[in-house]
Nucleic acid binder design. Structure first.
Lengths: 239, 239
DNA sequence: CGCAATCTTGAATCATTTCAACATAAGTGG
DNA sequence: CCACTTATGTTGAAATGATTCAAGATTGCG
């Protein structure tokens, strides 16, 4: 079931039945990846794109000193590498954080969509533009927010994104990331993530334990984060 | 003349004469913007996209404390807001750094392209995916590179991008940015940019004076930057 | 020419990193 | 199901890269 993708698309635009069918038809092949596995290697050509259905994945680049920077986190409903359709190879790798269920679509099939279904094409294009908007917000976080604001912002962002696909409730959501993972997303060290998590907890904003984010004070958290959700484009209109 | 766009597209794919004509036809309207002007306001709806023909522009977000983070720099041949075609409004503002010449294309015309010219559509989609690849690389810079590496990386990136449109030679290029601008791109303070520029100069890597980047030791600069140009996708193939 | 913007430098401060040690949790094989 | 082992989390103290503040020098513009 490509349900999470349809939920996501329907949060941003109106998906016609024929379009939903076309997507289901080209996304028939399913795969399961174990946790902590590289799924797409930087630079390698792949003839298909991957839609995440269940689990958590990320895009990342390795640095020469062994560090890595995660440039995106993916939740169900996200295409992790739809852009490989036009880029042909990727400038980053893609890996699973948890065990994942995915569906794949051949680039050949996407090409046919661009030739026959202009509105569906625009929706797919939109999804990659949404990715870019998230990249920009991460750039802002890394450039101008301190550690507490970065963490707070990431928690707010994931809350909003998981709500779209029905994987969060008002006071929190499951998040199977380690403190090392968070550090690699936020350009910090694991040690500092740990101290900053404690600070957020002591300030009564969020608690992160048992692989679950507990939002204690959403308003306060959003204030610390300077969270402005416009970059998530959560309005339903023709794209 | 949309020459710089055609040069850029031809660096990544092969533009058919009919496609070049179609682009020229929809990009007929020209405008001139003075330096340091906001061209697109965050959140405001605009029915057209802007192609930069001459000058330097940027995408940025303002922070509540008056700081700002630039998320992209644009050189001639770049669409500064092609993504507004599917996003409808932007999560960031766009401003000129220098006096700029631009061409504009109505979203209505872009929509027609998506309905009639699939390959041209894919090339435009590619351009937005290229933007996202640059965003990812900036995320890596801000997350994992120190000040010297960030500056070195930006100088390498701009060198490569300006060469595509014929605005750089082997040993450097014009760059009309202040140290404050560089600081806003790189998530640093102007003071630290100043000190880091001196350091790069003293190490014989680059010199930045008279609004010109003089590359003294390209190899050395790329090493400091850990510059891997794969994210610029400078190969010519069907997209 | 004169004023404003930009650049430059030093000294003190601050946020984050590093290193190191230990604690707790999770996963695996017997 | 326990025992072992490894991964993950926690805390302190010292070091470091970048910031802040402040003052003066230089450049560029009207």
């Amino acid at each position: 079931m490509i349900e999470p993708l349809l939920r996501k698309l329907n949060a941003h635009d109106i998906v016609q039945p024929a379009e939903a069918e076309a997507l289901a038809a080209v996304l028939r092949e399913r795969r399961t990846h174990p946790a902590r596995r590289v799924v797409v290697q930087r630079g390698k050509e792949i003839p298909f794109s991957t839609l995440l259905l269940d689990g958590l994945m990320c895009r990342y680049k390795d640095m020469s000193n062994g560090e890595r920077q995660i440039s995106a986190l993916h939740v169900p409903g996200d295409f992790v590498d739809l852009h490989s359709f036009s880029l042909k190879q990727l400038d980053h790798s893609v890996a699973t954080m948890t065990k994942c269920e995915v569906a794949i679509v051949q680039h050949e099939a996407l090409k046919r969509i661009t030739e026959e279904l202009p509105h569906l094409t625009r929706m797919l294009w939109f999804l990659t533009n949404l990715d870019a908007a998230l990249h920009r917000e991460w750039t802002v976080s890394l450039g101008r927010r301190d550690a507490a604001a970065r963490l707070a912002h990431l928690f707010c962002e994931l809350h909003a994104r998981l709500q779209v696909v029905g994987l969060a409730d008002a006071d929190g959501y499951e998040l199977r990331l380690t403190q090392v993972d968070l550090a690699e997303c936020l350009g910090l060290t694991p040690v500092h993530i740990n101290r900053t998590l404690r600070q957020l907890r002591e300030n009564g904003l969020v608690e992160y334990r048992n692989r679950r984010v507990h939002i204690l004070d959403r308003k306060g958290l959003e204030t610390v984060a300077e969270f402005q959700p416009d970059y998530l484009y959560l309005n339903r209109r023709e794209r």
